[in-house]
Design a protein around this nucleic acid. Structure first.
Lengths: 147, 147
DNA sequence: TGTGAAATTGATCCACA
DNA sequence: TGTGGATCAATTTCACA
């Protein structure tokens, strides 16, 4: 039941609880109760809006793989990357590289500046960038009851 | 001004227009007007909720690079990937591979099934997977006025 | 956990600067 | 494009099954 509520809200977080309740067969108050509990449990992290990156000038996307050296500074790499507004996602990954970062900038030239900034972080050995030509889709709402 | 409204709403899409207006120095009605226009222009794509993937059992993430063969089926690859619920993002990229997909499944074993599905799409030549060990952060709200 | 109804708060509309 | 006030619709609370 919670899964169906998340799906209903995921597609449009503004949909009223009455409408959602109608869809899943619960009263307004019951939906409210469940949403409140999911917020408490951390299932719902926050309500948000989906902004079109192009519209705000952030039309350039790249994935940057980052390799650490073996030094003592490795623990500090992630916090430093978190401070950079261009870094929208950061994953610790298995394989040849240690991190995979999703970067969004205004244009290609700005990526160069971001890469210099990343390379200047103590502990970073090298980076490899994959430039996005076109984002087919993203923002796909999480479907809890995946097939 | 719109940028500040997006930032205020991006951190919590449920924040009231009165509160947002207070923050940016506008009346409730003015914020409402601007949000309406941003919805019309497509700057705001939709209101949504941020769901914690682990909480709904989708605790396994991987990035899969996909290489097309040169055949006639290449145009059909993206639409087919869009239909797969496990594929949360799909980017057309420059370099050795043609697509980069963000995949979310319940566990590693399920990724295997997803990979078989992807490899069975006509036009797909080969894939390379990068397994996520830990997501440091994602869901970073878009900061329109990036430094 | 659920319900329906009451109370409260917020979104939306309007006349006007 | 903005404002303040009226109206309408939503969330939130409550007594109770």
């Amino acid at each position: 039941m919670d899964g169906r509520i998340l799906t209903a809200l995921g597609n449009d977080g503004r949909r009223s609880y009455a409408e959602v309740g109608n869809e899943v067969g619960l009263s307004t108050a019951a939906v409210h109760e469940r949403v409140k509990k999911m917020l408490e449990r951390g299932v719902i992290r926050r309500f948000s809006i989906s902004v079109d990156p192009d519209s705000v000038g952030l039309g350039f996307t790249a994935f940057v793989a980052i390799r650490n050296d073996g030094g003592a500074h490795c623990r500090e790499v992630a916090p430093r990357l978190r401070e950079m507004t261009a870094v929208q996602e950061l994953h610790s990954v298995a394989g040849e590289y240690d991190f995979l970062a999703k970067i969004r900038t205004h244009h290609a030239r700005e990526l160069e500046a971001v890469l210099y900034q990343i390379k200047s972080i103590p502990g970073v050995a090298r980076t490899t960038s994959t430039v996005v030509l076109n984002t087919e889709f993203e923002d796909q709402p999480l479907r809890p009851i995946a097939a």
